[in-house]
Simulated assay, not measured.
Amino acid sequence: MRPTLTHIALHVPELQPCVDFYREFCGMQVIHERAGKGSKIVWMAEPGKEHQFIFVIMPGGTDRDLAADDYSHFGFAVDSREAVDAIAQRAATAGCLVWASRDEPYPVGYYCGLRDPAGNYVEFSYGQPLGPGSEAMPIP
């Protein structure tokens, strides 16, 4: 059996703001909570993906403090350029937009970037050969 990526575990400075961010901007849901790491550990997943891939969020981390030109990020696909723009607008209002909506050559597509409360960058993209509906798209 080959290994399968199932989760990413994040230590964050403050737990609840990160849970709220991933719920509000990414549509993730809390699927499990338990005591640990000084307060609690939270598992979050996209609806319907609870057995495929989750974020494990734990308190006790430090702010990532990424530079504006650091493109380390978590990537989420959305279904249109308008959805990217809507997220960017909400993020600008919330003060967490780091990359305004922009168009890059294939396979990057149209995207924006947000900063979560722990300092991680989160990309929302349309037109990449990844995510729902992309199976018919070639990967160069």
Rank of each mutant, 00 (worst) to 15 (best):
M44G: 02
M58H: 03
L15C: 10
V122R: 05
E104K: 15
K37R: 10
M28Q: 03
W43D: 09
R34H: 07
S80C: 08
H7I: 02
A67T: 07
Y111I: 10
Y126N: 14
D85T: 03
H11K: 14
P59A: 07
A118C: 10
M44E: 01
H73F: 11
V42G: 00
E104R: 13
Q89N: 09
P132H: 11
F124D: 11
A91W: 08
F124R: 11
P138G: 14
P138C: 13
L15V: 11
H32E: 04
P3R: 00
R115M: 14
C96G: 09
F25P: 09
P59I: 11
V56F: 07
A9F: 01
G127R: 14
C96L: 04
A136C: 11
W99N: 12
K49I: 00
D70I: 00
S101Q: 15
A9N: 09
D116C: 14
L10H: 06
P138E: 15
P129Y: 11
R2C: 00
M137R: 15
A35M: 09
R2K: 12
T6Q: 05
H11D: 14
F124C: 10
P132I: 08
G133Y: 10
F124K: 10
G127T: 13
E123M: 04
M28K: 00
M28F: 06
Y110M: 15
G61L: 06
S101K: 13
M44R: 02
S39E: 07
Y121T: 14
P117L: 06
R81H: 10
Y71P: 00
G133L: 08
D85G: 10
P47S: 07
Y22C: 03
V56M: 12
E33H: 03
F76S: 03
L10V: 04
F74Q: 12
W99T: 08
I31D: 02
E50V: 01
E33C: 05
V56E: 15
S101D: 15
H7P: 06
L10I: 03
F53K: 01
R34D: 06
I57P: 02
G61F: 07
G27S: 03
E14R: 12
L15N: 06
A35N: 06
P117D: 06
Y126M: 11
D116L: 12
D20Q: 06
G95M: 13
S101C: 14
D20W: 00
S134M: 13
V122Q: 09
E46N: 05
P47V: 03
R64W: 08
E33Q: 13
T4C: 00
K40C: 13
A86I: 08
V122M: 05
D69F: 01
Y106C: 13
M28G: 00
V78M: 11
